[in-house]
Design a protein around this nucleic acid. Structure first.
Length: 218
DNA sequence: CATTGATCATAA
DNA sequence: TTATGATCAATG
């Protein structure tokens, strides 16, 4: 799939997909949707990248590199309410020295997002999910201030090596939670004395209360 | 029933 | 291992 050359083309392409189920669209590509969501958690996101022509692959950059736009699918119920939090990026546990908000991966991804709602639910298979109205979004000044505050509070703890003092209950909009294959996963981090140590990987997530406000705008 | 901590699939 | 894409499931 070729990549859209501008925002308008990207949004138009996303709107053309509205109303289709992922199974219907997958058939056009001779792709089979996973039977169970458990075994294909990320499938709908990857498939939407294909449909819309994303270019970043597994790079730590916005999906549409030339447009500076990040793509996020978001599961919603019939009332339009998000069913899950939204993963944004990995937490830099070992390369955060001097890191400023505007240089962070979180900021670069959050500054412009194409949200693609998927009508979902426990009884709806991946193939049965239907595409809703896509929405191109950027945080308001007020939202960005709060996001930055959340990020700073969490990263301050990281910088002090106080990972054990961080819980998912911190952060008004942006939270920090485990992000790994399992609880035994390890990456490099810093302890309170500044030593390199093995720690469990974390990720930044947007709370459903925040994304609900975004989707409710339209 | 919303939330927090844990988990699944895949690429390089 | 670190990154992408996310949702699961135990718990309060």
């Amino acid at each position: 799939m070729n990549t859209p050359q501008n925002e308008e083309a990207l949004v138009a392409r996303a709107h053309d997909l509205m109303g289709f189920s992922l199974g219907e669209l997958a058939a056009n590509y001779n792709i089979t949707a996973p039977d169970l969501l458990l075994n294909g958690k990320g499938w709908s996101g990857v498939f939407m990248e294909l449909l819309l022509g994303a270019t970043a692959g597994s790079l730590a950059e916005p999906d549409f590199q030339h447009l500076g736009i990040e793509l996020k699918t978001i599961p919603i119920n019939q009332q339009g309410k998000p069913l899950e939090s939204t993963y944004i990026s990995i937490v830099p546990l070992n390369r955060f020295i001097g890191l400023k908000w505007k240089e962070s991966e979180v900021y670069h991804k959050l500054k412009r997002i194409l949200w693609v709602p998927l009508l979902a639910g426990k009884t709806i298979s991946p193939a049965e999910r239907r595409i809703g109205r896509a929405l191109l979004w950027s945080p308001t000044n007020e939202q960005e201030m709060q996001l930055q505050q959340d990020w700073q509070e969490l990263m301050d703890r990281v910088a002090l090596g106080e990972l054990d003092a961080i819980s998912a209950s911190m952060g008004k909009y942006l939270q920090m939670r485990p992000k790994g294959a399992n609880a035994a996963s390890r990456c490099w981090g810093i302890d309170r004395e500044g030593n390199r140590v093995r720690v469990s990987p974390r990720g930044f997530y947007l709370r459903p209360s925040f994304t609900q406000g975004i989707l409710a705008l339209h």
